[in-house]
Design a protein around this nucleic acid. Structure first.
Lengths: 204, 204
DNA sequence: CTCCTTATTAACCGTATCGGTTAATACAGA
DNA sequence: TCTGTATTAACCGATACGGTTAATAAGGAG
């Protein structure tokens, strides 16, 4: 890629990669056209190809960028510096909301990219990701303080169910094209409060 | 459309419309090619166009068909003939699993079709659907026996959260390409058992 | 204003794919 | 062998694709 991209005003950089996140999150790699990304970001296709040598390079840049920014946000929100499960959950989701403010379609992009089947892309993708999600799950389970949680329910199921719900919630938001970080943040917080009420042992 | 389609052996009919459900569930209407549907169902494109006059007609046929079959399955499983919420949920999901055995990609298709933006399609779609999902939610709330449920939690949130989780669960299945009805049925049942344990008032 | 560098794009290229058609073939049964 | 039907290969014009090129616009230095 062309390093001059980084000399662009930050707002323009963001406009371009956001357009790319959007287009790549709505279609598969193969069916997502560069021209649509150019149109969406308000620049010419030629300029887009001036900054990114080809489609594959742009896509992989987006991928690496997404992982990096996610890691950074998780760190900034001190997500793993607590052992209260719901606090951890909250920090994790708030960090995602903050990312969403700058990059509304990054979350959907990541989800889709992980399952991307295009051969040119597939290999480069999956290696660096399985550790991110899998090991973070491990860390959570190791650090988690379970003493205040109900004893009669299976924690793994609870954990899975909560993440299913978050994915389902976000899916609905994306499908209906309502990506409003403030609204999402509020609703997520109220969902977490709901889960706390449900899963924390009475009297604990 | 050509009525001769219905003279085809049922297995072949199903192969064709399943291929169509699959392709239309993976790409938007505009980007889903008829040739892919033909290939996927093992017939020539020309024959596909012989049975369905054009792409739009096929799509709308799939849509009407999906609604009709869903309604039928809900009826067959006597979904609304109980007022136990979890029983209702179970019947509703088991009916979907049974549909999934014949039409694995219908669920994903319906979800996507509802939010389809292509102008040629949009108008024809949304009218007949909002009643299906909205009023069924109404019916559930009207019929629902809440006496055994925990009094300290908000029922609407519980309802929403459960359906988010189911959507999130199914999303994962589709993304990872694991549509195995028997497996899904088992996992769904165990999720429902989990919810029962969580939401039913102790001692009720 | 002139010159030079850099940012930006319109126009283009060859190829692939699209929705849809046509004319010919394979196949069945009488 | 004839006849009607099921099926497809080959084709059509249009469009969209990834990527390039050559020219223009913009900006800053002298």
């Amino acid at each position: 890629m062309n390093d001059k991209f980084f000399n662009l005003p930050l707002e323009k950089q963001q406009r371009i990669i956001n357009a790319a996140y959007k287009v790549f999150s709505q279609s598969s790699y193969k069916k997502a056209p560069m021209s649509e990304i150019a149109d969406e970001s308000g620049i010419s296709k030629a300029l887009l190809f001036h900054y990114f040598t080809n489609k594959k390079e742009l896509y992989l840049y987006l991928w690496v960028n997404a992982i990096e920014m996610t890691r950074k946000a998780v760190r900034e929100y001190k997500t793993l510096e607590t052992n209260d499960f719901f606090e951890m959950l909250k920090r994790s989701l708030l960090s995602k909301c903050s990312l969403m403010r700058d990059y509304p379609h990054m979350y959907a992009f990541s989800l889709r990219a992980y399952y991307e089947t295009a051969s040119e892309i597939k290999s480069a993708i999956q290696e660096n990701f399985s550790d991110v999600s899998k090991t973070s799950e491990m860390i959570v389970f190791e650090k988690m303080d379970t003493s205040r949680l109900r004893k009669d329910i299976d924690l793994k199921t609870m954990y899975d169910e909560i993440f299913y719900a978050i994915d389902g919630y976000m899916l609905k938001k994306y499908r209906s094209n309502r990506i409003i970080p403030d609204e999402i943040e509020l609703e997520i917080i109220s969902l977490i409060d709901f889960w706390k009420k449900v899963y924390i042992q009475k009297g604990a």
